[in-house]
């Protein structure tokens, strides 16, 4: 009989697709994983920037057209929210005026002194290259998952993965942005302890 229409179902998230083989169907794997637009990831982020190094806890919630990233210190202090939709990004810190900009990168750099390449990280954090952009170089592990990737001036390495609902998702991501002038060199180390794919 016809599928039962849920009366007032919450925003119905599509069922999680099965993972194609990263080894033999890398393009499908990359496309299907890239299209999962509803996910959340939690962990610790090490930041190495000439004069803003440190480590923060992060909680990144991604929805189809929007994202919300929370950063805070070890005792929960200094919460910073970076929220974005397709055309605008806001950055809020408790006790201060919210700031807005077109991109998260510019907003974070102006406020925090470092930045996350949010639009590409959206894919890199899943262990896949950003789509419709050239991949300068990539090396895969024997099981087909990415070991290293060079894209958009960033070198990304994936030292370890974890098994989540049939998908191999990164447990640790190291992203280095190397530019000629030393002072814009940035190294981000994500240690991920929780993945949720919807």
């Amino acid at each position: 009989c016809a599928g039962q229409q849920m009366p007032d179902s919450a925003q119905q998230t599509p069922p999680l697709p099965a993972a194609p083989s990263a080894l033999t169907q890398w393009d499908d794997y990359r496309t299907v994983l890239g299209n999962i637009a509803h996910w959340q990831v939690q962990g610790k982020l090490g930041i190495r920037v000439p004069d803003h190094s440190g480590s923060v806890y992060f909680n990144w919630k991604q929805l189809p057209e929007q994202f919300a990233i929370l950063l805070n210190g070890p005792l929960g202090q200094g919460s910073t929210w970076v929220r974005g939709t397709d055309n605008q990004v806001s950055l809020e810190q408790a006790g201060q005026e919210a700031r807005f900009a077109a991109t998260a990168e510019q907003l974070m750099y102006n406020t925090l002194g470092w930045w996350l390449p949010v639009s590409e990280l959206n894919y890199w954090v899943k262990g896949i290259p950003a789509p419709n952009q050239p991949v300068n170089q990539s090396i895969h592990y024997e099981d087909g998952t990415l070991q290293t990737l060079q894209q958009n001036g960033w070198d990304i390495s994936y030292p370890r993965y974890q098994q989540i609902d049939g998908w191999q998702l990164p447990g640790k991501v190291v992203a280095r942005h190397r530019l000629a002038d030393q002072d814009s060199d940035i190294k981000l180390t994500f240690i991920i302890n929780q993945w949720q794919l919807h």
């Binding site: 090490g46 190495r48 190094s53 440190g54 480590s55 005792l75 202090q77 200094g78 180390t189």
Partner: peptide, 24 residues
């Protein structure tokens, strides 16, 4: 001192406003 073993880094800063926002 904030030491992250898994990041192999220690960040040293001075006691500041940030810490006053904690139970410390």
């Amino acid at each position: 001192w904030l030491y992250d073993e898994d990041l192999e880094q220690v960040t040293i800063s001075s006691v500041d406003e940030q810490l006053n926002q904690t139970p410390a």
